[in-house]
């Protein structure tokens, strides 16, 4: 797995992400500066990490989405390359047009920083092959704008094409408004693009990979990606 982690001014989760990628795949990722115009040769996974690029000015992810490196990411994705966006990374992918919809202010207007439960909807994708469909995982969230919104037609298409990968759920996997902490439509926590090679999600699986933290539920995502890319190579 030859991964590249994008670094924008104001991003603060890129080291967690890099540490996880190294821990799970054994290979150090390349850190790629936003002003660069090319990804390192042979990159097979681009990760847009979380944080607060440009201080969330204008709209979350809006300015980062127009950074020079994003043109390279767009053409990488158009060729089928795998792209993972977490938290601010999800917002950046939506703003850049790589994923549909928008992450709006949480319905309760509060910044939420805690563990949530996610139901994994599918296991037959490069991002979720490390899990079983219907499995519930516990991962942290830390965001003020994670309330996923799209027009009715887009939501119908996402649901109809099975493009919702993760939903906020109760610990037993039931979808319940009380566990949909940010008010996202259809409790959507993560989606893929129409080709299935770009995933955006609000929660932080990279923070639940080390037994020292007390939970390793996030590991499956990275282990699955590493396995997928090892087979493809």
């Amino acid at each position: 797995m030859k991964s590249a982690v994008l670094v924008f001014p104001g991003i603060n989760r890129e080291r967690d992400m890099a540490r996880t990628l190294k821990l799970v795949s054994g290979v150090e990722p390349a850190m790629v500066w936003h002003a660069d115009t090319e990804l390192p040769k042979g990159t097979d996974l681009v990760v847009v990490p979380g944080g607060f690029s440009y201080g969330d000015y204008l709209r979350c992810g809006a300015i980062a989405a127009r950074a020079p490196i994003m043109d390279a990411v767009r053409s990488f994705a158009a060729k089928g390359g795998l792209v993972l966006g977490v938290c601010n990374g999800f917002q950046i992918l939506c703003e850049s047009g790589l994923l549909p919809g928008v992450l709006m202010r949480n319905s309760q207007l509060r910044f939420i920083c805690r563990d949530v439960y996610l139901r994994v909807e599918r296991s037959d994708t490069p991002f979720t092959r490390g899990y079983n469909a219907g499995q519930v995982i516990r991962v942290p969230v830390a965001h003020g704008e994670g309330n996923y919104i799209a027009d009715g037609e887009t939501i119908a298409r996402l649901e109809g094409e099975g493009r919702v990968m993760f939903r906020y759920a109760a610990p037993d996997g039931m979808i319940d408004p009380n566990w949909n902490h940010n008010g996202a439509m259809n409790a959507i926590a993560g989606i893929v693009n129409d080709a299935g090679n770009v995933l955006g999600m609000m929660p932080h699986p990279e923070n639940h990979v080390d037994p020292a933290i007390g939970c390793t539920d996030g590991r499956g995502l990275f282990a699955g990606l590493a396995e997928h890319l090892a087979k493809a190579a």
Binding site: L58, R59, A62, I63, R66, E95, P100, G101, V102, M104, I149, A150, D151
Partner: peptide, 9 residues
């Protein structure tokens, strides 16, 4: 169109 507004919303 490019930056100031997100025309989705």
């Amino acid at each position: 169109d490019k930056l100031l507004a997100n025309t989705v919303i």
